[in-house]
Write a protein that binds this DNA or RNA. Structure first.
Length: 157
DNA sequence: TTCGGAACCT
DNA sequence: AGGTTCCGAA
């Protein structure tokens, strides 16, 4: 599509033959939206084994994760954003803004436990991957992709 | 601990 | 828009 929202063939979901609704392909609704977003960062940490003592997927509910060391996650996030004063109080406020956006929600009763709304974010900000020059998938995508495609299927539009 | 308003920033 | 900072309330 001319607007920069077409589905690249190299898109794993596409090659897997999955159909997604139009809203899922929203690529550049806002200029800075694809870089350094908190939920990308969370997914990035979640994907790396060396951070399992800090943040990890939770056994049980699909897409659920636990922040095992809140201040350390905050420190890493602050490091990424060059905000040395970052702490869990502030980071968690940012996470709470995701509730209305339906990117995340809180698992009530479970301490430091949140859950991703994968069906809503799967292609939110999905970059336009070039067919001719396939760029490596964003690191956050690998985390989502792995969890999403291994788990329950998607009904489609 | 968790929540969400409000002001502020880029 | 997507946080960051601060904070009172539950």
């Amino acid at each position: 599509q001319a607007g920069g929202c077409s589905v690249a063939v190299s898109c794993p979901a596409h090659s897997a033959g999955l159909a997604f609704p139009d809203w899922a392909y929203k690529a550049e609704s806002s200029p800075g939206s694809r870089q350094n977003q908190l939920w990308h960062f969370i997914l990035e940490l979640l994907q790396q084994e060396e951070f399992r003592h800090v943040i990890a997927w939770q056994q049980g509910e699909y897409g659920e994760f636990v922040i095992k060391d809140p201040e350390e996650v905050a420190r890493l996030w602050g490091q990424r954003k060059c905000k040395p004063q970052m702490n869990y109080d502030k980071l968690s406020r940012a996470l709470r803004y995701y509730y209305n956006k339906r990117i995340l929600h809180k698992t009530k009763g479970k301490r430091f436990t949140y859950k991703f709304n994968f069906s809503k974010l799967i292609f939110l900000n999905c970059p336009l991957w070039d067919v001719r020059c396939p760029s490596p998938l964003p690191v956050w995508w690998r985390a989502v992709g792995a969890r999403f495609f291994v788990g329950a299927g998607y009904g489609g539009a």
